[in-house]
Design a protein around this nucleic acid. Structure first.
Lengths: 237, 237
DNA sequence: AAGGTTCCTAAGGATTCCGTAAGTACCCTC
DNA sequence: GAGGGTACTTACGGAATCCTTAGGAACCTT
């Protein structure tokens, strides 16, 4: 239920990989197809695809045609991606049954937000239940965070960071994974940037400056969200 | 379901009486109007009308014109009645915002079943109870807004914007979601346009220019409707 | 054709966010 | 414990975002 399946259709393996990491790190299961033919097969076979991410420019059967054929056999929401922004192509895409249209280049946030909107629109409501632990509440749908009943304002970067960490509660998340999830695959080296954002986040949600309570550091690897659990008190042996 | 109210608009008192008895015996409450002007007044005045039964052939303002004016101030379903069965008039009526078209003479059963169908069709998607909070009232069916018991005129754009925000009370709505909802998927980049409309809306419904009370801005994301609640206190660095 | 709305675009100024850099503190290995 | 690498903290200025206003185009009514 929470792990929705997305069919990613693009002929460029570079693009596929970038999108796949983005999507998987956002909690989706990703199935890939290189051509329109493959995509149609995939839908017929797999069946339980929740959304199709379809690049228009593809060899063989074009994206428009693929869209039309998919629509013939399924009501799955289709989000079309294209570099062109001509009116004609847009109209064609919608006529072929596309549900939304996204022009390259686009930001990760925009992509995810569109996917969410589309899924919500089509299938009732896809809502992630709010997270709550002692003293910290994170409402993903409302983009709201409270620390001890005190509302706290987070910037978009901080919130996305927290969202990712909380959704992977308990598991250490690598630096580059976070960087990729926040700013895209081309920024996986900029660790210092991440550190600053982590710092700002901590300053807002950690109550005790001496002892972190939620966002723990995984040395030489990344960060991990885990509430309450204190580090063992330092003790000289 | 309970006692739905129907506004019956016809200049012929004979016809009115006949229809009134039919409708009341079918369980509806009937309000009458002799002319288009009266009909518009009736809608504007109180009494949430659930459906309008409108004869096209009337002295003074014609039925088409009445239809157009009603549609401007209300989303109430309109069922048009006419002796003519020309294609042209039909098209005119639908263009003016009519929801269905019935040619005289017609049987009682047909009238009632059309009314039922129309109410079902409309109430499934669009019959939304009015929103009300301290100082702000939004009547979706009648397209009316009052701020502190003071009626406020909103333009179509402004009203649609407010409608979308209010229906998602508490949840932040992304820029592109609003843009898409207001102007279609091909305008999802024109954020400045949205800002201006937001500004105009705020100017009309926000009382305190220093502190917004309803339409809050979610930086780098979109807007959120939430009454009274103050901005979360920001921690000073 | 004149008057009135509504809406789009542009331009300014204000605000918020974030990337960079520089100094400090911490951790692990040797 | 010393040293090198890693992590934290803070601050500042550029960049992006947001707000406000106004002028004129496009549309509709009188």
């Amino acid at each position: 239920m929470t792990t929705a399946k997305i069919l990613l259709v693009d002929d460029d393996s570079q693009v596929r990989r970038a999108l796949r990491t983005t999507l998987t790190s956002a909690g989706y299961t990703v199935v890939e197809a290189r051509t329109g033919e493959e995509a149609v097969e995939e839908i017929q076979a797999e069946g339980a695809v929740n959304l199709v991410l379809l690049d228009l420019k593809m060899p063989g059967m074009g994206g428009i045609e693929a869209c039309r054929r998919i629509r013939k056999i399924s009501d799955v929401p289709i989000l079309v991606i294209s570099v062109l922004r001509t009116q004609e192509e847009k109209v064609q895409a919608f006529d072929a049954g596309a549900d939304d249209y996204l022009v390259k280049p686009f930001g990760i946030q925009e992509l995810l937000s569109r996917i969410h909107a589309l899924r919500r629109r089509v299938s009732g409501s896809e809502s992630i239940p709010p997270y709550e632990s002692v003293g910290l509440k994170v409402d993903f749908e409302r983009r709201r965070v409270t620390v001890g009943d005190q509302p706290v304002h987070l910037t978009p970067s901080e919130f996305e960071l927290l969202r990712y960490l909380v959704l992977n509660e308990g598991k250490p998340v690598a630096h580059h994974t976070l960087l990729q999830s926040l700013w895209g695959p081309e920024h996986t080296r900029e660790i210092q940037r991440l550190r600053v954002t982590i710092n700002q986040l901590r300053r807002k949600i950690e109550t005790d400056p001496e002892q972190v309570r939620y966002v723990h550091t995984e040395h030489q690897f990344g960060y991990r969200f885990e509430p309450i659990v204190q580090k063992p008190a330092k003790r000289r042996l």
